[in-house]
Structure formats: structure tokens, C-alpha cells
Amino acid sequence: MNWYVIGLQQLINGLALGSVYALIALGYTMVYGIIKLINFAHGEIYMLGAYLGFYAITSLNLSLVPAMVLAMVSAAIIGMLLERVAYRPLRSSPRIAVLITAIGASLLFQSTAQLVFGASFKPFPQAIPFTRIQLGPVFTTNRQLLIFGVAVALMIALHIIVQYTTFGKAMRAVSMDKDAAQLMGINIDRVISITFALGSALAAAAGILVGMYYNRIDPYMGTMPGLKAFVAAVLGGIGIVPGAVVGGLLMGVAENMVVAFVSSTLRDAVAFAILIAVLLFRPNGLLGKNRTEKV
């Protein structure tokens, strides 16, 4: 096979993986945009989403779409609870305290999942039969198309919510200036809650998509994709919604290319190398504007 065929194939695989990163990254970026918190537990919500989907399909015998909706709604509630219980009491605390809490929440979800669901992996049920679609020298699969399709649909839905609804307007206002938004009569607590709900729902969807893609889920599956999605959000410009999409897709493609052309052991290093490069050379991300710190 020629190198460009490999490249093209990895581009397809990378876009599928990248759209998952993008879905998770959206949650990071929205939360960061609104309360300046890296929600470390976000990757764990994605993991929980996968398990919720798993039980919805295997125990409740639901088909894929209702299972996904159920998982997204449940994850949204978990996300709102997390914010209410762990983050809201710390809203005026130093950022470091909140960050430590977020790490704590992440550990809590992970270790609880390990207790409840077991530490070993579970095979994810195949809700749709697998087919391979040949496109000239390269191929894609119906699962990849499904991942990509669902991800795009959810992103469009989110875009409509953020840009064209009253809630979206309130959310943008809060992220620009919390105090001013409050003075304009916006219920900040509610906006933050809904932001967590939206982000968590997207992460849950991503969890189910990945469960189907790799056929397996385990309690630790959230850590790495969570970190990588965060990197994607930083890459695109944290707090910027389209940035998360761009960053996620780029990350997915970059990772697949490195695995194909360099070494598979470097899979996880790619994300961190990108992260460090971005932080050092373009800390506001690809789509971010430069800001100066006020003295």
C-alpha cells in the first residue's frame, strides 16, 4: 500500500475518532468558558455515559437511539448534581481548590464505577450489524459513519442552542461577564447547571459511540480520552465552541497519523506534545484572540 493510501485511510479513522474528542471537548470548553474550571470529572461522565448506554441496551432491552437518549438524560442529571454538590460551594474559592475538587470528583466517579461495574472490561453490545464500505482504495465502516453523523448532528443542535435560543444568549452573557449578566436578571446558577447538563449529555453520547466503536467499555476508559479532549479544547481555544470541534478533529487525525507512520506506543504522547506546543506558542488556541493580563 502506498503511503498516501495509508494517510487517507488514517484521515478517515482520525475524523471518526476526532469527532468523539470534539463531542467531549465541547463539554470542557463550555464549562471553562462559563466558570473557568477544568472539569476533570468530565472524562468520567463520558465513561458513565457508556455504562448507562450499556445497561440501557442489555438490561432494559432498548434499541440504540432510546438507549442513547436515556443515557444522555441521566448523564445530564449527574453532571448537574456534580456541579451542585461539588463545585457550587467553591465558586468563590481559589481556582486551585476547585481544580483539586474536580480531580477528587474524577477519582470518585472512577473508583465508584470500579466498585459497582467491576474493574474488568465489558463487551459493548452491537446494536447495529457491522458493514464495511469500500471507497476506492480506502474504506470506512457504518460505525464510523454513525459516529461521525451523530457527532455532527449533536454539534449542530448545540450550535443552534448556543446561538439562537434565549438560554444560549444567557450562557454567552455569563461567560463574558458574570456580574453584569446577573445584574441583567440572568439566573447564573441555572445557566451554569444547564451548561453542565448539555456538556454531560454530549459526553454520554460520545461514550456510547466509542463503546460501539471499540466493542468494549471499562471504568478507566474516561481518563485518556478526557485528557485528550481537554487538549483538543485548548488546541481550538478554550471557551470557544467551534474551537472544540476543530481541535477535536485535528487531534483525532494527528493521533492516527502518528500511530500509522511513527509508532503506536506514542499514541498518548501525541496529545501531550500538542498540548505543550499550544500552551507555549499559542496559549489562546487556534481560534483564540490574544488577551493581555490586567494589572
Binding site: L90, S93, I103, G104, L107, S111
Partner: peptide, 19 residues
């Protein structure tokens, strides 16, 4: 197996009540 569950709860509680 309960170690991390307990640690993480303590961590959160400490940050909220005794930062």
C-alpha cells in the same frame, strides 16, 4: 477497593470545608 472512593470523598470535603 474502597480506598480511592474514601480518598476522593475526603478530598472533596476538605476542599469545601477546610481548604
Amino acid at each position: 477497593e474502597y480506598r480511592m472512593v474514601i480518598y476522593s470523598i475526603i478530598l472533596i470535603l476538605v476542599m469545601i470545608y477546610r481548604p
